[in-house]
């Protein structure tokens, strides 16, 4: 099962490599990863997506918690949450395709952020499966380049991951 683990950790050199190292060392898989400092510059927020059954995820979270620089973490998929990913995608836009791509962008509520006579550069945000669906709708043969930010996530309601 796909999980989104969100980690609050010390914003220190070497902290990120410990998190990444843990995954490779113990044979866990990271599907996506995004990290940036928070409003408190001493803390970074790291979100990663991984796959595993309950037992494996329990081990992952226990081992992450053991890392000295990890302050707190939450498995967002355990509760209601909001998941977002940003995608920048370049697609061929010529002939009849040009209008078709534009329509798809509108349907998916994306934005065309750069245009040439043959190419559209599109910005799209949403849950990862929405981004997957957009690529599916455009057709892989039309796609020239894809850049995805990795998942960011936050709990719904009043639940907060902070100190």
């Amino acid at each position: 099962m796909r999980r989104i683990i969100s980690i609050l950790m010390e914003n220190e050199p070497g902290a990120l490599s410990r998190v990444i190292g843990l995954f490779s060392q113990r044979g866990y898989n990271i599907e996506s990863l995004s990290v940036a400092p928070t409003e408190d510059s001493t803390l970074s927020r790291l979100t990663l997506t991984t796959f595993g059954n309950d037992l494996k995820i329990e081990q992952i979270t226990k081992h992450l918690n053991k890392l000295i620089e990890v302050v707190k973490l939450v498995d967002l998929t355990e509760g209601a949450h909001i998941e977002r990913e940003l995608m920048l995608i370049k697609v061929k836009a010529t002939g009849a395709q040009r209008a078709e791509v534009k329509r798809s962008v509108d349907i998916f509520r994306g934005q065309i952020v750069d245009v040439t006579s043959t190419v559209y550069t599109i910005q799209l945000t949403g849950a990862s499966d929405k981004l997957d669906a957009f690529i599916g709708a455009i057709g892989e043969t039309q796609v020239l380049e894809v850049v995805r930010s990795g998942v960011s996530g936050i709990s719904r309601g009043e639940k907060v991951l902070s100190l």
Partner: peptide, 12 residues
């Protein structure tokens, strides 16, 4: 880096 998997923690 070399010692990372075999220490409880490390400092530079």
């Amino acid at each position: 880096g070399v010692s990372r998997p075999v220490v409880k923690h490390s400092f530079m």
